[in-house]
Design a protein around this nucleic acid. Structure first.
Length: 572
DNA sequence: GCCGTTTTCGGCCCGACTGTTTTCAGTCG
């Protein structure tokens, strides 16, 4: 059982407790614990062995006992007992729009409905509308919700949602009665995947704003339309929520609507202790109901005695405490990036010539770019032999003379084989400016084997960087089973850099892991792994992930000048 | 079920929208 397994079960327990009508705070406790465990880089088995389970935020005596039982036996009697009362199919139902724990229980108790298909059948046969609290409209909403559930897309990549949101914002911005408009929610926090798009507008003409929004060409169905809040489904099956407030409320509303939920709950708890109340309209003194501010987000945070918090940090993972101490990280910015150390050319499986890559890098304002084509053992990607590299270096030399203003570096992406060996002998590896080593196969090995492979690469003194360290592909492939704590420790000890791969479906290392690795002294490189010059822009998503991982420019090697960076790579 | 500068009990964020009710429960974020 790994962290994800435990988090999954705790989440399901939370949901089952909701359906059972348990006290909401009990179920919230399980969800909070699951959330914390999901983000841990350290293996929960190790945490257990070190007797530190109760140090995980949100894990107390009770939940720690549940976790211990799961880790020891692979089973949990309490979980199985709950499943007898709440069949697994029932948990799907609360994923349907307009169906929550109460209605799911109602449908199950009164009609024996225990999965989505049965619910659709019951709606079609109009057996729902006569249930208490239901009616014809509610029944139709459930039916539409089921159909959407079956077609609705899962969470989509930030890189897909971001342009769509920009497009909607641009259109709304053109109306002169819409004074301000901004993305909010997980999109503004730049989460790697997005469940729905949240947009906030400031206007003095609420209903006109709502009309304009609900009539955008991207909209396929209006789920709800109110005076200040509407929800629609777009043509591509993504939900978009829009909220409109008056201009003087914009800051408080942006704060509230950006979330995360966990961040906001914590913030409002602090407000309460100070005798204040925070909502989407402003900050208020509870006693006098006097409004203290809220036109700008900064006011909200300052009134609570803390620094304004970057949206990318608002996950309730220590940022509120840091902001209170005036101690937020000075997170790395796009303008700090001075080069890319992992770009492919047409020598292996890339699209563009070295010269074109260099010119594109120069246009981005980079000082340097490393051509890091695959090495020979990765035959499927057109891996290069020793002789190929020597000829490539000649081309690099010519291009360096011809272009100027940007330095093209000799890179390589060597493969870490099933035993942890990399392509090429030490004498040849030494001739590269930067050596990145990555795993491209043998994913099904066990945790010890996979960890040993990466550790061997880390201890190879000619390997500078471990590429896409966990190998995950969002929505397609889970990360390799790894002892990340051991890998972070070894990387910090040897001065081996860990890559943050900016490909939108990789973003590997992910945000939570970056933060933990940073805390033990690991340094990073933010690369694109671009296979065409158009993909160099993916640095934008890698950078956002770095920010979410609390990285500062000093933690990232490709924010340094060429000279400084080469020194850090051990090349003079 | 968790947690602590109101600390071992008594709290636990706050409000909009919908559809059912006729003052409110459920859902959502």
């Amino acid at each position: 059982m790994d962290n994800q397994d435990i988090a999954f079960i705790l989440n399901e327990i939370g949901e089952m407790l909701e359906i059972q009508g348990e006290h909401p705070f009990r179920s919230r406790a399980y969800h909070r614990a699951a959330y914390a465990i999901q983000g841990l880089a350290e293996d929960i088995n190790d945490i257990y062995k070190e007797n530190n389970l109760e140090k995980i935020p949100g894990v107390g005596k009770g939940i720690a006992e549940r976790i211990v039982e799961l880790l020891k036996t692979g089973k949990l009697a309490y979980y199985e007992e709950l499943q007898e009362h709440v069949p697994p199919g029932l948990l799907q139902l609360i994923g349907i729009q307009s169906v929550g724990p109460k209605k799911a229980k109602l449908f199950y108790d009164k009609l024996g409905i225990a999965d989505v298909e049965e619910l659709l059948k019951a709606a079609d046969e109009h057996r729902l509308k006569d249930l208490p609290g239901m009616g014809p409209k509610a029944e139709e909403n459930v039916r539409a919700g089921v159909l959407e559930f079956q077609h609705l897309r899962e969470r989509i990549l930030l890189s897909e949602a971001y342009p769509l949101a920009e497009n909607i914002i641009r259109q709304l911005d053109e109306f002169d009665f819409i004074l301000r408009v901004s993305a909010a929610g997980s999109l503004r926090r730049m989460k790697e995947t997005i469940g729905d798009i949240d947009i906030l507008a400031a206007s003095n003409e609420f209903s006109k704003t709502m009309d304009v929004f609900c009539n955008l060409s991207e909209v396929s169905r209006v789920l709800a339309k109110g005076e200040t809040k509407s929800s629609v489904i777009t043509q591509i099956g993504l939900k978009v929520d829009v909220r409109v407030v008056s201009p003087e409320q914009f800051g408080a509303a942006l704060q509230y609507f950006t979330g995360s939920k966990e961040h906001n709950i914590h913030l409002r708890e602090i407000a309460k202790k100070k005798g204040l109340k925070v909502n989407e309209y402003g900050v208020f003194e509870v006693k006098t109901e006097k409004r203290m501010g809220g036109a700008a987000e900064e006011e909200v945070y300052n009134l609570l005695g803390m620094q304004w918090v970057y949206p990318v940090l608002r996950e309730n993972k220590g940022e509120i405490e840091a902001a209170t101490l005036n101690n937020l990280p000075n997170i790395v910015n796009l303008s700090d990036i001075k080069g890319d150390l992992h770009v492919h050319s047409n020598w292996s499986d890339g699209l563009n010539r070295i010269k074109d890559v260099a010119r594109a890098a120069k246009e981005r304002g980079y000082e340097y770019v490393a051509i890091s084509d695959h090495a020979e053992k990765l035959k499927i990607a057109g891996g290069l032999t020793v002789d190929d590299y020597r000829r490539q270096w000649e081309e690099i030399e010519v291009a360096n003379k011809e272009i100027g203003g940007v330095t093209i570096l000799r890179g390589t992406e060597v493969n870490i084989d099933n035993e942890g060996n990399v392509d090429f002998e030490d004498d040849f590896l030494r001739e590269f400016d930067v050596v990145t080593a990555s795993i491209h196969g043998g994913f099904s090995q066990n945790k010890e084997q996979l960890t040993r492979r990466i550790l061997r690469a880390i201890y190879n003194k000619h390997v500078n960087v471990i590429g896409h360290p966990t190998g995950r592909i969002l929505g397609k492939r889970p990360p390799y089973l790894l002892d990340l704590k051991a890998i972070f420790k070894a990387a910090a000890e040897t001065g081996t850099f860990l890559e943050l791969n900016s490909f939108p479906d990789r973003l590997d290392l992910k945000d939570d892991y970056l933060k933990e690795a940073k805390d033990v002294g690991v340094k990073f490189v933010i690369n694109t792994d671009a296979h065409s010059i158009g993909q160099l822009r993916y640095i934008f998503y890698g950078l956002a992930t770095a920010q979410r991982g609390w990285l500062e420019a000093g933690d990232v090697i490709n924010t340094y000048s060429l000279e400084e960076m080469m020194k850090m790579l051990g090349k003079e």
